[in-house]
Amino acid sequence: MMGSAFVQLSLTPILIGVLSAIACALPGNFLILRRQALIGDAISHVVLPGIVVAFLITGATASMAMLLGAAGAAVVAVLLIEAIKRLGRIEPGAAMGVTFTSMFAGGVLLLEQSDTSTVHLDVEHALMGNLESLIWFRARGWESLFDPVALAHLPPELPRIAVVALLMVLLMVVFWRPLKLSTFDEGFAGTVGVPTGLMGFALVVAAAVAAVAAFDAVGSIIVIAMFICPPAAARLMTNRLEIQILWSVVFATLSAVLGYVLAGYGPLWFGADHAVSAAGMIAAVSGAILALASVAAPHRTRLGAPKDAG
């Protein structure tokens, strides 16, 4: 299991899975504390139309164009949600529901109507991800990690998600104080000079970038599990935000590794000869972790009274 076949077939998918999970879990911590968990839901659904539009405009599946298209779609979605909320005085959940379903429907329709069948872009792949296919062809074993030629042939998704994960860590470190402050007490944060509106918007855009980068690996719906499950389980483990973030990274990593291994090798233990969806299994494992935390974690229940609606 640890030999050259592992490096060639499993190392890169596991790394990509772990990095995707971490990149999503980091902003997910704040989405949960801000009661915006479902923004993750909305964003991940509009990644598909964004990618389709980017493809129709550029005619290529260049990853940069896709990334920009999806991030653009996320920004459009956020603006549309805000507009519907404010202009129509509609509650946020419903505004999100209107926005992401409509954009998703538009994306599917565009996809079905255009000649994208030749390229590697189809709805099911977009929904379910394709972690297993992100293998490292050129690898001959662990020594390939030091072989420039082999390294040049790493699946491009790996460096991309690595950069994005690093970016998430950096953003979180740099903006830690204003982010925490505006999440806890937005009114006060504004009076000490934190641009709270911008902070909230930037958080959503960061989440969108993470969702786009993770999308190839785990698909647009399982990304939601990465946004929510590890941070939600982490919230039940501690009462300090710093430690919650660390737990969420641990849970994200655990979900990705265990999920991939169970999907790849689990069925063999049961005598089946085919692996099952790794992305789906990662979501299932993250759900199992959350379930365990919900019944056994040390800080499961609320301390303070819920915030006033007004």
């Binding site: 949960i32 009661r35 915006q36 968990a37 479902l38 993750g40 839901d41 959940g93 929904l127 379910m128 698909g219 719906i221 399982i222 990304v223 939601i224 599990a225 946004f227 929510i228 499950c229 939600a232 919230r235 039940l236 999907a263 085919h274 692996a275 099952v276 969806s277 992305a279 789906g280 299994m281 990662i282 979501a283 299932a284 993250s286 759900g287 959350l290 919900s294 800080h299 499961r300 229940t301 609320r302 301390l303």
Partner: peptide
């Protein structure tokens, strides 16, 4: 202590993930 939005997101994505596993 999790709010309903987190619960919705968690159930939605985890069930979907399990469903995808079953489809494969």
């Amino acid at each position: 202590r999790l709010a309903e939005d987190a619960a919705i997101g968690a159930v939605l994505s985890v069930f979907f993930g399990i469903g995808i596993v079953l489809l494969t």
